[in-house]
Nucleic acid binder design. Sequence first.
DNA 1: TGCACTATTGACAACGTGAGACAATTTTCA
DNA 2: TGAAAATTGTCTCACGTTGTCAATAGTGCA
Lengths: 368, 368
Amino acid sequence: MLWFCPGPFKLTSGCRPFAVDLGLAAVAPIENCPTKAIALTNQREIARRAKTSLKTVSRVINRDPLVNAETRARIEAIIAEIGYEPSQAARMMRSQRSNVIGFLADGVATTTSSIDLVRGAQDVAWERGKQMMLFNIERGTQSADMADSQLAAFRAEAIIYAAIFHQEVDIAPTGVPHVLLNCFDRRGRHAAVVPDDYQLAFDLTRIIYERGYRRPAFLNLGTDIVASQLRGKGFVDAARTAGHEAAGQMHTAVVSPAGAPTEFATRRILAEIMSAGEKPDLILCGQDIMAMNVYFELGELGLKVGRDIAVASFDNLDPIATLLQPGLSTMELPYYDMGRAAMNLAIDGADESQVLRLKGKFIERQSL
Amino acid sequence: MLWFCPGPFKLTSGCRPFAVDLGLAAVAPIENCPTKAIALTNQREIARRAKTSLKTVSRVINRDPLVNAETRARIEAIIAEIGYEPSQAARMMRSQRSNVIGFLADGVATTTSSIDLVRGAQDVAWERGKQMMLFNIERGTQSADMADSQLAAFRAEAIIYAAIFHQEVDIAPTGVPHVLLNCFDRRGRHAAVVPDDYQLAFDLTRIIYERGYRRPAFLNLGTDIVASQLRGKGFVDAARTAGHEAAGQMHTAVVSPAGAPTEFATRRILAEIMSAGEKPDLILCGQDIMAMNVYFELGELGLKVGRDIAVASFDNLDPIATLLQPGLSTMELPYYDMGRAAMNLAIDGADESQVLRLKGKFIERQSL
DNA sequence: TGCACTATTGACAACGTGAGACAATTTTCA
DNA sequence: TGAAAATTGTCTCACGTTGTCAATAGTGCA
């Protein structure tokens, strides 16, 4: 299919859209998305216009039923007309409530999957009339302190601390309640929301055996990762429940320490186990990124995933899981729901010792 | 490499870390990351403790030089000790300045690459003492209106509107200055920051010819995409500069309309052009996601990227570009710098008609 | 007409901060 | 010692909102 490319090119700078500058056919713009005008005024001004008192305006805005219907209509018309919004700053001061929940994202917001932690939390904050303040922090830098100062200045009512991978942390309690997300306090001093990694691995392994696979090889993440330990346990337990002993089929396929750029040992391990007497019939990967690596390594060995060997994984990482060919069957980590749960705990005020473990969902594609 | 997995498992609920519940070796927790205590107090209280007057405390906090060094030290010590932060709400009200910049992310925050738009903007806001408020909105839903209301309530000083892909929009001006990010107003009524897609394609194509490739096939994005048009132009112009006519080697490889889940036509196109008389020696893809697809499709045709044929692309999408084997050579879109630029414009107040076009960077790997 | 009652509206203070005007006090210098 | 300078304090106001409480208007009844 050819693509027509007209006329000579001349790059001009200025305000006109590229398409026009280039002499190309104009692309239909997206439908109107007007931003409401913001009126920088106050209730006193509304009152003046409505020829009423300041307090009556306040009552209308706060839906106080003790207002005459006619008066209310008049005031609401004026508010709508000039697009007035009550000042949040003044409300905060008057009510001594900020409605602000802090979200400290320790590296989270830079990676795909865990964006869902942020999205889930923000959606709930939104639904429940709270304002979420997001901070990308990096441990060991001043960013954490600065975020704390900001949140203190805004009198945040609770703080969600989100880690980039499931881990143990050590966070001293302060005056503000904390909810730990994708991590937990080593001394259980804060409420926490984590993925149920044991269940994820158990369920996935159960499915694997149910489908008739008998020699799954688990290329797990580093042994210093909490998730690895839990998943390893779930893998072995589920195999045992199915009447098999699988501990010998588990390998550590990540050579870099936690947090560092991931380096896989998949090539060496695959070369080893695929040349052994009893070859695995399925490769279970610790994460979708590793699975992508495994697809390529298996290809190098002349094996086609889905035909010669099965692959399964953890994450359901967009867009990798769908783009791999064949599509990757994987256990989805419940990041979005974890974010939602954490925000609900933050708003409602959770018990310190509360730990929520959220289950994952099996996403079936063609690799298994 | 075997992985040791001890003891029987028993899942208990409660506050103790999983590793302990499971009888696993404890993982060393991350170093202490204490959150500062937030003192819910005011300057009057500080003054009481320092046995001084309210005004002097105010002077210290606002760095008034007319304060004795000793007094200043005493007050600062008390402020540090109890972790006092001046109430942002009160400051906003007093100063009539919110220091808030709104960031409306139209679907942006859900995809990998454009997270960098958010990161760049937030980093600058941070460095310059502003508070960025992030809203994920969806066109056509009420979320946009709600975000506007929130920003109005906080008396935002400027609003950044970020689109998920380079496009033309139609946003009516309001009382608050807008900066458009990854999009531009059809009538040039707002400052805008966009990637220089023409330059990206021109430079990449130039490099391709410099390296000796002579028959690149460009699998471009949909013709309704601004970026496609610009890149198509850049591709043809660069080829012409190198003394070749390449317009006939350009194809539209995306069949879904803009915004919808991407569907590629790569299989059909590749089958066609790879069986033609003059085969391409390089496949230039409209985005890294498409490149991943192309890797697999070429594999199906028995061709190995990097050996039998070269591939290049646009995005430098983490983690795909690095994980593909061989690594994908690609033009990086300057999302992070675009985010930074937009925030700087938002803070400094840009000319309405200002359009920044940021250049991309060639990231060299082994696919070319 | 007067009274009790309700419905509706209004006056005022206070939240925490910052700034101006100006007075009071202490320190420094000639 | 006196004058000038440095430092600190007192008082006031303003920002925009909302809770407390008082005032006013309207209604029904004797």
